[in-house]
Design a protein around this nucleic acid. Structure first.
Lengths: 72, 72
DNA sequence: ATGTGACTTATAGTCCGTG
DNA sequence: ACACGGACTATAAGTCACA
């Protein structure tokens, strides 16, 4: 599932960067609880949100999506 | 702008595949008018929709996004 | 530091049409 | 084939209190 793979890659990359959900939320100007929902697969982002998050994670959106593809 | 780059890549790839908006809509099980809105930058897709469209266009989502990055 | 439920507003996405 | 509109339903955006 696409939403599932997104949530896994998100959590994985955030962890690798040793960021809390709170810190990441602050970096990409989103709500802490929204990040939580994304990681639990309860929301799926629009592409704008995807790009925003990738910028905060310092990863190219295309690379993020490439990692998603590996999980599908 | 992210939405703008999405719409450009979408139209570009659809044209290269010689698909009408109607045909593409049918292939990815979306509405004809919605494809039109996406190409005019009036809507932005969720990631699920992005993957759906990429599947119909026979392009990897990561490649689609890579082409978006070139325009930003 | 995070999960969760409930909530409101905005927008994703459909379906009817027109020129 | 496509732009464009109105009206609709489903779901994302964004926030809050509490565990």
């Amino acid at each position: 599932m696409i939403i599932e793979s997104f949530s896994k890659v998100l959590r994985d990359l955030r962890m690798k960067r040793h960021l809390s959900q709170e810190k990441l939320a602050e970096l990409c100007d989103l709500d802490r609880t929204y990040i939580s929902m994304l990681e639990r697969g309860l929301r799926q982002p629009t592409i704008t949100t995807l790009f925003q998050i990738c910028s905060a994670l310092d990863v190219a959106p295309s690379e993020f999506v490439r990692q998603m593809e590996e999980l599908i």
